[in-house]
Design a protein around this nucleic acid. Structure first.
Length: 312
DNA sequence: TAGGTCAAACAGCGCC
DNA sequence: GGCGCTGTTTGACCTA
């Protein structure tokens, strides 16, 4: 405060002999002795002091006539409020940042300022507070934004990772399925071939492979001779043809179809189901180069199978 | 001492 | 008309 007081302009023209201490501000003058407001030309009661203000006591009594004269040589210049005045106003601002008329007058009295000065100070103070508040809000929002951005980026990374993982697993699954299909088809083909070898050896049919026509021919002769004993209610009666009929006994003595006698010694129906029937599938379209992998009857089209039984 | 910063003071506008 | 808000001006003060 002393330093501030020592910076008083040397161009002041105010006559210190006219300075008075406003009675209503005497306490404030003691409390804020360094004030040098250029516009404090009247006290709280509106009495015009023409630039002769509350700070007289400090400047005059403690700094002497020279400093005091210097100070008032330039009353038109803007003067900063003293530290004590600002502190007092700050405390008041913390209580209430808006000024009621009575409060304004009272503060002006206490500080030895014009009510308008107090109002302007509050106005500027509110503006500063708002600026700081906006800065705080901005920082807070920016921090929130940064946090959310980081979380979002992490989620994106996680999503990409999971997508890649899912794709890898899907590919592995498809590959595994393919391998399983191949091995199963090979196994089934092998199985079918084994059974064929067992029950329908190629040499049984001689040089001429057994064809559908010859089988059908034998079926017809068999059926014609045994039709009276066919039980259509039998579970082995398939589409009008008893399963036992498929144990086609050749019409003549030359056996073109010979079944293992050990198998025939058992139940004929079972033998048909277990041995003969699978073997018959072997007659299906041998020219098919790429049979389906997962079925023993892969060579048969759906419409081909009944043909085997019902060709006439 | 120039340039930057801060705060006092002001101007203009809208609201009640 | 008084008051608050916003933007601007201006002077005090600081610092490189």
């Amino acid at each position: 405060m002393l330093l501030q007081n020592q910076r008083i302009s040397s161009s002041s023209t105010v006559d210190n002999n006219n300075l008075v201490i406003p009675s209503s501000s005497s306490s404030a003058a003691a409390a804020f002795p360094g004030s040098r407001s250029m516009v404090n030309f009247s006290d709280a009661n509106g009495i015009n002091f023409s630039g002769k203000s509350f700070f007289r006591s400090f400047d005059y009594e403690e700094n002497g006539d020279e400093d005091f004269n210097e100070y008032f040589r330039q009353p038109e210049k803007k003067r900063r409020l003293t530290v004590n005045q600002v502190e007092f106003l700050e405390r008041s601002f913390e209580v209430e940042n808006k000024l009621q008329p009575e409060r304004k007058v009272q503060l002006a009295k206490d500080l030895g300022l014009q009510p308008r000065q107090v109002a302007i100070w509050f106005q500027n103070r509110r503006a500063r507070w708002k600026t700081k508040s906006l800065e705080k809000d901005y920082d807070s929002l920016k921090a929130s934004y940064d946090t959310l951005k980081i979380n979002y980026e992490n989620l994106l990374k996680e999503t990409e990772k999971l997508k890649t993982e899912a794709l890898t697993l899907t590919n592995q699954h498809l590959l595994h399925e393919k391998e399983m299909d191949n091995s199963e088809s090979l196994h089934l083909i092998e199985q079918c071939h084994t059974r064929t070898q067992k029950f329908i050896p190629v040499e049984v049919f001689g040089e001429r492979p057994l064809d559908v026509a010859s089988i059908v021919c034998k079926q017809e002769s068999f059926n014609s001779s045994n039709s009276d004993v066919v039980d259509t209610d039998s579970p082995h009666y398939i589409n009008g043809l008893h399963s036992s009929a498929l144990l086609m006994e050749p019409a003549n003595s030359s056996h073109v179809f010979e079944v293992d006698q050990s198998d025939l010694s058992q139940d004929e129906d079972e033998n048909f189901s277990r041995n003969v029937l699978p073997a018959m599938y072997n007659f299906s379209k041998p020219e098919e180069p790429n049979p389906p992998a997962n079925s023993c009857n892969y060579g048969f089209l759906a419409e081909d199978q009944p043909v085997w039984f019902w060709s006439h």
